[in-house]
Design a protein around this nucleic acid. Structure first.
Lengths: 258, 258
DNA sequence: CCTGCACCGTGACCTTAGGTCAAGGTCAAC
DNA sequence: GTTGACCTTGACCTAAGGTCACGGTGCAGG
């Protein structure tokens, strides 16, 4: 027995590696045991106990830098610290469980980027028969909107939901998307602007915050075009918006100018 | 809007730090986005999606080195990999839960070092009225025994339990411990050896593996003396063992010599 | 127009908890 | 007497970023 365990046996006992034991010695977490005649470390149960204590705390996630003070504290502080460690462990466990659930969203690109409610809005658009490219643009827009105005995102979704509930709005918006293929001077553009303005006048709650909604339409339309056709301009949409706003102003609605 | 988010906004969106985003670029996990006129990175939803995917996997514990291949794999491989990640997460969770339970053992030094069954044996010794120093020595011995013969530890405990169930054994062992304070030539030592040998002869199952049990008695006695009195020898115990073994051999029991 | 301040750029070094490698000494067995 | 398993020290490597230094950019206030 030579009066104690060699480092490999001590390490196996504590279920750590030899290197880890030496690491703990270097950090002063476990005192160096006495050496035998050939300079080998010889471990008694005192050091083994300490080693197991350190390992237990370390694998529980306590930083090594804190373990020394923790183990050298008096009983009261020690049990309090243990309770704290346990709390942190519990936090980590619930955190990991949350991450495990988040993982499922990865299978679907939309769901990784947007909260469920926004996904529901996009689904509704698809169900209402909007063009897939249009919906994709709306998705991009929602992602950016959430990044740029995280506080107002929920209200913004509410506004979108309100609009999608209105059959007239849905119809006019679909036509507006088709309009991007029309000629710059197509007379239908003005017709569409008139119909849109009339819709807003008949149902003002659909307008929402005009600043935000204008930015929204331009941005999401542009994104759809950039991503799907490499085009940078959405001239028809811009013209349509301008005409609609002009008509609203003419009717006495205070629409701010860009 | 300047056509995209700056790195700080993208990082906030993905709930990582700016430094982390650049780190992912350097590792090739997220493509560098285009730059604006002043060289700033400008992020679109493509990169944001990728960023969120990488972060989700990374915080789920997937090494960054694996994430690239994982996200670039086809759908089948990807969902398989996700399932694997989830399995590893579950493992980590159950592992943390086990560690949390282990933590409680730290409050008591014995319970950190020894399995419950061994603690029960020590408790039984205390309850049977063994001297506290003796029990402490047994504890040290158990710790070392578990380190040195982990495979045989359970059988060894069984042997101890068997012995403690025998009132005669308990009585003789207590006297043997007291004997360490006697004179080397005290006639009671031989009496004790005779009684002990007779006990073993009457009840051979108490003997167990004689090699192991002899090593055990010597080691645990020595540890108690070293730790509590700084003595290195346990001469009476050694003599007692020798006398007992001689008597057993005389009675025809094959006791191996050291 | 200048100055602050908050943001962006790169590059080099620091951190935690060890792992790996190198070069040599020791021990038990065949 | 040599092999192979173990021990010694020391120097360097790793992941996943953090911190520091030093400089450029963009915008608001005085």
């Amino acid at each position: 027995m030579m009066g104690g365990l060699a480092i490999g046996q001590a390490a196996a006992y504590a279920e750590v590696t030899v290197k880890t034991v030496r690491h703990y010695h270097r950090l002063g977490l476990v005192d160096e045991p006495r050496r035998d005649s050939s300079g080998y470390r010889r471990y008694g149960s005192e050091e083994l106990l300490r080693l197991v204590q350190v390992r237990t705390l370390a694998t529980a996630g306590v930083p090594l830098a804190e373990i020394g003070a923790l183990l050298d504290a008096d009983a009261g502080q020690f049990t309090a610290a243990i309770a704290d460690v346990e709390r942190r462990l519990n936090d980590r466990i619930t955190d990991l469980i949350a991450r495990r659930d988040t993982l499922h969203r990865l299978a679907d690109g939309d769901r990784a980027l947007l909260p469920d409610r926004a996904c529901a809005v996009l689904d509704m658009m698809r169900d209402l028969g909007f063009d897939a490219e249009y919906v994709a643009g709306q998705r991009e827009g929602l992602v950016l909107a959430r990044a740029l105005l995280p506080g107002g995102f929920d209200g913004f979704l509410t506004q979108l939901e309100l609009r999608l509930d209105d059959a007239g709005y849905v119809e006019l918006t679909k036509r507006g998307w088709e309009a991007e293929g029309w000629d710059q001077n197509d007379p239908r553009i003005e017709e569409l602007a008139i119909a849109t303005a009339d819709l807003y006048l008949a149902n003002p709650s659909l307008m929402g915050d005009p600043d935000i909604m204008r930015a929204w339409i331009e941005a999401s339309t542009k994104y759809a075009l950039i991503n799907n056709h490499g085009e940078v301009q959405a001239p028809i949409s811009t013209k349509l918006t301008a005409l609609t706003e002009a008509r609203l102003r003419a009717a006495g609605v205070p629409v701010p100018r860009e």
